[in-house]
Amino acid sequence: MLLHRFAALVAAATAVLIFAGGLVTSTGSGLSVPDWPTTYGWFMLTFPLDKMVGGIVYEHSHRLIASLVGFLILMLAAWLWRAEPRAWVRRLGYVALGAVVTQGILGGITVLWFLPDAVSIAHAGLAQLVLCLTVTMALVTSAGWTRGYSTDDRTLQGIATATTAGIYVQILLGATMRHTDAGLAIPDFPLAFGGLVPPVWSAPIAVHYAHRVGALVVSGLVLATAAHVLYHHRRRAELRRPSLLLLALLVLQIALGGLTVLSGKQYVINSLHVVTGALVLATSLVLTLRAYRPRFARGIRDQGPGIGRTVSPIPDPRSPIPDPRGAQA
């Protein structure tokens, strides 16, 4: 349980990091610290606080929070390596560690190469994957996951997967829009130049419009998923709660998107839009994984550092006959 709480803390810290990263881009502070991994020649942790001014506040804070999150993920990976009996969960820890190290390097490269769009977009996209990994680790170490859920609804699995994938694509579109400076290419909201379709086209307008169309597609997917859950599984709290949260976050996210345009990309609103997008993704991922939960084996013994440890072995009448060599879920 302590491991689950720590994993949840790591996931929360990752969301905070995404907000801090959003502030860096929203305030145009990405190059206010020109060197990396040092900060104006100082080792990052010894940079004088009195020099944290202007854009440095956002960029250097982002680096400090990123270092903390990297350290937390390292601790989590080590903890899983020592204590987690499921090999695939331990691997999640290693993958998350590799992802966060890669993310740090991408962040450094984007500074040293003056924020090339492709690297900055990759940095934004990988941040979401790191969040997904930490959320997954928090979920699969929870007591609820260990007890297992009995709903094995193929339709739900399909639409929830499509929703999560759609949200991720939409986030990538949003990152492309942000980093190509197309956030105000369409200056009005909810219409586009007073109509449903822009009367003129350019690359920034196309990217911006694609993000708006993406929002409609994602809204449809979220509504379909939530409607399916509320119609077929409304008594299953583990599915109903994330569905309702997903609906609430979707409404908030669309409102923040509109306000971002109408406020001329006010940096706090803009950054809240970024982090709320991440929370929409994380919530959809939790719902999707819970929909797939019956397909994961339970009460698993595994070889490796966690050998001999068993996670709440509750018999499942539908489970296949255990493999004497130890199942790998």
Partner: peptide, 26 residues
Amino acid sequence: MRRRLYLALALSVGALAAACGGGSQD
């Protein structure tokens, strides 16, 4: 498993060192 972990760490450190070397602004 440890071997793979060490390999991953070595690759990460290598990549980090390579990235650190790119800051020349001559």
